[in-house]
Design a protein around this nucleic acid. Structure first.
Lengths: 153, 153
DNA sequence: GCAGTAACGTTATACTATAACAATACCATG
DNA sequence: CATGGTATTGTTATAGTATAACGTTACTGC
């Protein structure tokens, strides 16, 4: 279930991030880029403190704000999503633009798959309209057990 | 946006809980009942530590496990839902059975509205099937700004 | 009554996140 | 290139959320 993340994926992700930041004028500093790289390499949702431990080893500040600020930036750029139910962060699978999405998260292995299912998203938008809710772009979390973990059991 | 919760709602909620626990054989102890009552009275998602402070004043233990254990029980009975994005707990609007649902949560006032929108839920189930994901019954969180809070702004 | 289990009390601690302020790096402009 | 303003990062401290572990009490069934 862990999404295999190849070196090519990582480079594509970083390149897309560079492009996105160029367009928006945001500064993808070495620290921010490094954090994104760690998230990409991990290939599945990863905790802030885990990232922080990895940052220590290459000389960055090792207090929580270091990683939380970078993650906040990356989220604002739409490069990373936060998974509230597991307090983790995962690289966006479509970093090229802001979007709605569904993300299926496996309770067992922690892996995640992001989908863009127009029908579901439209219907959710319709419900929101009826309630008078305004929905910012976001990714909806869905918990379950992935195929591999079901097989293991 | 705060759901108005009348005394009648509260009693209906508690009565439904009694029934549900009778059927399942679960024990709705005074503490658990009191916690559910507090959640019902609040009428919108409420934090565990807020509940805990309220419990102090009527003689229950005032350490975190007191409230977390009660909340865990209530969740297991489907009487309460946890909202991960705000670390809060809210009374289920349909405590009579296990179910899927959507819950719209307002970022500004913290209010919430629970819906059961079959079309959306079916479609999410279909996506899950395609991915090989098994979905336990759950309530999907959707963040936004409610009508009242939009008007205020 | 008694044994076994479930619930609750209590202490301690882990984990997650942010506030606040200082120091530094970057950038635009004169 | 000097300078002032802004953005970023470092650092310390602390807030907020949640659970582990173990002892005690209360309930249930026999």
């Amino acid at each position: 279930m862990t999404q295999k993340r190849t070196a090519a994926d990582k480079h594509a992700g970083l390149a897309a991030a560079e492009q996105a930041c160029l367009r928006s004028g945001a500064r993808l500093t070495p620290l921010r880029k490094r954090v994104l790289e760690l998230v990409l390499v991990c290939g599945k949702p990863v905790g802030a403190y885990s990232l922080l431990r990895q940052l220590r080893t290459d000389g960055y500040g090792d207090a929580p704000p270091t990683v939380y600020r970078a993650l906040e930036f990356l989220q604002a750029q739409g490069l990373v999503h936060r998974i509230a139910k597991s307090n983790t962060f995962v690289a966006c699978s479509r970093p090229q633009d802001e979007h709605y999405g569904l993300i299926f998260v496996c309770r067992q292995c922690g892996g995640a798959v992001e989908l863009e299912e127009q029908r579901v998203l439209k219907d959710i938008g319709r419900c929101a309209d009826q309630l008078g809710f305004r929905l910012p772009k976001q990714v909806f979390e869905i918990e379950g057990t992935c195929r591999d973990c079901r097989a293991d059991a």
